[in-house]
Structures are given as C-alpha cells and as structure tokens.
Design a protein around this nucleic acid. Sequence first.
DNA 1: CGTCAGATTGAACAGTTTCAAGCAGCGTGG
DNA 2: CCACGCTGCTTGAAACTGTTCAATCTGACG
Lengths: 242, 242
Amino acid sequence: MIDNTPLVRKIGAFVALSDPELSVLASLHKRRRTFVAGRDLVHQGQTEQAAYILASGWACSYKLLSDGQRQIVDFQIPGDFLGLRSVLLHVSDHSIEPVTDIEVTEVLVADLLDAFTQTPRLATAVLWAASRDEAMVVEHLVDVGRRNAGERMAHFLLEFGARLALVGLGNKDGYACPLTQYHLADALGLSAVHVNRVLRQLREAGMVTFRDGFVAFDDYDQLVKFAQFDPSYMDHKGPILR
Amino acid sequence: MIDNTPLVRKIGAFVALSDPELSVLASLHKRRRTFVAGRDLVHQGQTEQAAYILASGWACSYKLLSDGQRQIVDFQIPGDFLGLRSVLLHVSDHSIEPVTDIEVTEVLVADLLDAFTQTPRLATAVLWAASRDEAMVVEHLVDVGRRNAGERMAHFLLEFGARLALVGLGNKDGYACPLTQYHLADALGLSAVHVNRVLRQLREAGMVTFRDGFVAFDDYDQLVKFAQFDPSYMDHKGPILR
DNA sequence: CGTCAGATTGAACAGTTTCAAGCAGCGTGG
DNA sequence: CCACGCTGCTTGAAACTGTTCAATCTGACG
C-alpha cells in the first residue's frame, strides 16, 4: 500500500488496487481544506463547484423546500464523497452542511475523469461507490415511507452504527454521534418534539440510549428485532473485482 | 448515428458519442427478453443476475418489509436501467416488478466493465446515468419525508410527466399512466384509501385528473405552484462532455 | 450573569390509517 | 349466456400517530 486514505480503504474494499492505480488515486487528492460546523460548503442550485472526499468529521446533505422545511438526505462520514453527484450533474440538487468541523481533500472533476481514462477499473470502483451511496438513500426512503417513528429511529441508529463500524468508528456497544435531535428530525421526516419522545421510549424500553453525543446500544439484539434491521444490503465480503 | 435505442438516446444526452463508442454500446445489447406484468424479474436477496435496459413498458423497483408492507423506490420507463445497482453490489437489495408487460435487452456486467476499458468515456456516461437515477430517488425521499399527501401526489405526478416528456411519452397536457392506486400508495408511503381521497381532492380542485390509465393536467401552472415543483434537478441542456 | 442552542414535557389538534362496506368492470367456467 | 370471483375504485366513520403550540429546563460560553 502506497497510500492509506479513507478513500483508498473504501474503494479497496471493492476493487483490489494495483500500485499504479493507487498512485493515480493518490494524485487525485489536491488541496486539503477545512470547514467549520454549520457553514454550508455547497448550496442547492450552485454550479461549477468541486467534489470533496471527507477526511474527518461528519457532514450532511439536505434539500430545502420553499416553505422552509428541510429533508436531510444522508450523513457523510470519513471516506465518503461530498458533492460527487452535484459535479456530475453539473448543478447541485442539494446543499451540504458540516455537522462538525471537517477536513476534506478537494477532487477536481477533470482529474477524476482523466483518471478513468488511465485506469478504467477506477471508474468501475467509483461507480460501485456511487451505487453503495444510492443503496443507503434507498434504505432511508424505506425508513421514511413505511416505518413508524419508533422503528424508523431504531433502524436509523442501527444502520449508522453498521456504517461507522465499517470504518472503525463504532461497534455493537455504540458510537460517538455528534447529531442533534433537530438533525434526526430533519433526516427522519419527524418533528424535533417527536424525536425527543421517541428517543425516550426507546431508552425506557431498554433498547438504545442517545445522550451527550453518544449512542449506546443497551440491547442490540432486541433493537435489531424491533427495527426489522437487516444489514445484508451493506455487507461486502472483500473485493468483488480482482 | 449507428444506433438509436432508448439507452443511446439517454446517454447521448450527456456524452457526445463517437462512432466507435456507439458500436461498443450497441454490442452491449444481448438477448432481447419479455416479461409479463406482475411477475417479478428480480427478487430481493438474489445474487448473480444480469442487468437489463428497458425497451418498452413500465417497471418498478421496491423493497418488502418483513411485516409485508412494501415501499416502491422508483418506477422505470423506456431507456432506464433495471438492476444495475444490484449487479454492481453483487446482491439485489430490492425486487423489480413489471407494471405492464415489458421488453428488455439483457446486459452482462462483464461486457459492461469491458466496455469501460475500451471507451472510458462510457464509464463516465454510465456514472452520470446512475447519478441521475440517484437524484430521482433523493427527490422521492423529500416527497415522502417532508410533503403532505396532497403535495406529495401532485409533485409525483408532475415529476413523472417531466420524465416521460424527456423520452417523448408525455407533455404538459398529460400522459398515459398504467399505475394503479395501490402502486401510488406504495410509492408515496400512503394507504390506498388515502390515495383515492387525495386524487379526488386534486381533481375537484381542478388541478389534475388521474382516471382510466391517463393523467390529465387540468391546470399545469396551478399544480406546479401547489406542489412547489422545481424541475431544475432534471434539466439537462445538451451534452456536458464533448 | 445573561444569552442561546438544545433538550424536555404537556395538551390540543390535524392528517392519515384502519376497518367496513359497497360498486363497477372483466374474464372464466359451468 | 350468465353467475361467480377477482381486481381496482370509492366512500364513511372511528381510531391513532405524529404535529403544533407553549412553556420550562439545562449547560456552555462570552
């Protein structure tokens, strides 16, 4: 391994990368930048921006309705792309807010597309990464469309635990979670008041406790059952492309 | 133009394709197959299946919960991929049901990935197509998470009109729509009963009429306003890659 | 010490679901 | 040719889930 950035770890899980491929990948990382929590990096409707790879911290992508409501589409954790879709579609269909202070590395689209020419397997890998992101949005849609508030919250907390576990930031006991109840409300399509009540119910039922920036799974198995959580769509058992 | 399949039309809207690229694209189309309405082509959890490109008819992709509820993630119309994500992730995270009888052409993943090696621009184009699909799922998520039943229905019908217009199957007067009220319910996260009521309200308000397999926009502008519909995320003004 | 973001709780209210019933159209088999 | 069963649509009433409004509380920070 030449490099061991979060992106390499993520993509390497799908495609077994050769040394030349690793160096092309490394050359994509341009400027390193930091953004402070709460100050949007990308605004809905913006054009001509760059994409980023999140190195540390949490961010979220969201859409604002004209009546002021917002829907958080997804949260990003280290190793995830920020704004890749925006850049490909040429206009950002969403905004991106750092949930915490974050560090990112900039990726210029032109460089990314050039890299595809040099190592087409990289294109496949990025397509895979995009598919995986889409799968998460899809699961989120199911959450919001067909689960009640309790199941929705439980499922969300479990899913995030699984995602964080993949990058070494959590396990079946729990994880550090910088989200506010307002973030949860906007992500789950609930009111902040109801989020608070639902969290209390789950806590009193002895399943999860979310407090002081930490999610603690008090009874993981019961929670999995309650949420009908099936992590199979997130499984990846080693490189698929050799 | 060597070829004029729905896929070429779709991808050509993003990448200006050269003749060699067109022929690689044409070589992807293998067996032509048909499936009857209601009989799933792909089942959740299935592995090792092929991807398809829809040539005629409508399909939908959905996820089933263990309690029997279902959430329709998206509907596919001619030119759309079926099961591309499943194939990349190696396991299908969803099922696919033909809404009408459909015709598809099979695409073998191996061929697709080979094609990327021969013409990397094709990889970019497919990545773009996947991003566009993801953008639609995202908008769907906003629908379900933050709009009430009336707005949700109105927005959905408008969005579909716009999508169909892109492939010449609809305009601002309306479009042929083979969906049942049950399909709408499962897509919008509502009960079938409520779908019926909401359709009545929209009809009585003089905005849209959905009857006998046809959506008629009675007052397009009013409906756009009511639904807070902003089609900018679907716009594409000619090839982005030259 | 005052302010502000975030969390918490209660009570009234609204939107949506569920249950129940009935109707229309259509294809099938007796 | 008609009765039957099935799918899809329609409507009303009761029940429930989640929202809104309003108030209070806490800890962090300047």
